[in-house]
Design a protein around this nucleic acid. Structure first.
Lengths: 129, 129
DNA sequence: GTTAATGCAAAAGCTTTGCACGCGG
DNA sequence: CCGCGTGCAAAGCTTTTGCATTAAC
C-alpha cells in the first residue's frame, strides 16, 4: 500500500532528521529543512512526520514537560532512553536500559513498554558550575 | 511570603486532588470541583494548580504523549513513578523505583532527577484479553 | 479598606484540517 | 492523466492573560 510519492519535501525532512544527533522539534525540523526548500510549510512537516512515524522511519520522543521531538529510527538504532540537560536543554540518547524495571509494576499488571528520562547536567555543563 | 488567601475555590481544588487516587488533568479537576463550586472557571484551576505546584502541595505528572496531570503531594507521598494502562487509559502510582538507574547516564553527566513510565495493561484489563 | 483571587473572554501557542493547485508516477 | 502531497489559511485545543468585580483578611 505504498502509494507514498517521493517528494523533495519529504526527502529533505527525512534527511534533516537522519543527520541530527539528537531529537528535533517540528519547528526545528522546519527551520533546517527550509534551507533546502524555502517554501516548505509547517503543515507539511507535521504531515510528513506522521507518515515517517507510521512507516517506522522516525520515532517520536516525548520528554515530559516539553513539546514532542522526533528522531530517526536509523540514527537511534534500537531500544534506548534519553537524558535531558537542564542547563543547555539538549536531549541525549542513552544507549543502556535498566533491567528488571518491569518488576516495578504491581502484581497482575502487564508491562508492554516503558519510558525512562534522566534529568541533570550533561558533560559540557557539569563543569560550568 | 504567604500572601495567599484561603479561598473556597482553592480549597475545593485541593480537596479534589487530595481525594483522587490517581493524577487528574485540569479538565477533570474542573469537572469535579464544580460540584462544590459551580461557577469555578478553568482559568482559576490552572492558576491554582500552578500555585499548589509552587508551594509543593501538588505535583505535576507528565505522561509522554498525554496532557499534564496533577496529583497531591500528600496522597503521593514521596518518590514514585507511574504506570499507564493502554487499555483503560488510567494512570497508576508505582511505589518503587529502579535503583542504579542513574548509572545509565554517560560518564561525566550528573543526574538530578528521573522519570519512569511503564505502559501496559492494569490488573483490571489483563483479564479482558 | 486593601488588594489578592476570581471569572469571563480574548489571546497566544501548537497541531490539525479544508481546499485548490501542482507535481510525481 | 490521476490523485497524492503541498501550501496557505482557518479552525481546534489547551493554556495563559487582561481587566473589572468579588471577597479574604
Amino acid at each position: 500500500m505504498v502509494q507514498a510519492r517521493q517528494t523533495k519535501q519529504q526527502a529533505a525532512i527525512d534527511r534533516v532528521i537522519a543527520h541530527s544527533a539528537r531529537p528535533l522539534s517540528p519547528g526545528e525540523i522546519l527551520a533546517k529543512a527550509r534551507r533546502q526548500i524555502p517554501t516548505l510549510s509547517l503543515a507539511t512537516v507535521y504531515r510528513t512526520l506522521r507518515r515517517l512515524e507510521e512507516s517506522g522511519s522516525a520515532a517520536r520522543v516525548e520528554i515530559p514537560g516539553q513539546p514532542p521531538r522526533f528522531e530517526s529510527r536509523l540514527a537511534a538504532g534500537t531500544h534506548h532512553h534519553h537524558f535531558v540537560c537542564q542547563v543547555c536543554d539538549r536531549v541525549y540518547d542513552i544507549p543502556g536500559c535498566a533491567r528488571g524495571i518491569e518488576a516495578l509494576a504491581p502484581a497482575g499488571f502487564t508491562v508492554e513498554s516503558h519510558e525512562i528520562v534522566l534529568f541533570g547536567r550533561c558533560g559540557a555543563c557539569v563543569g560550568g558550575g
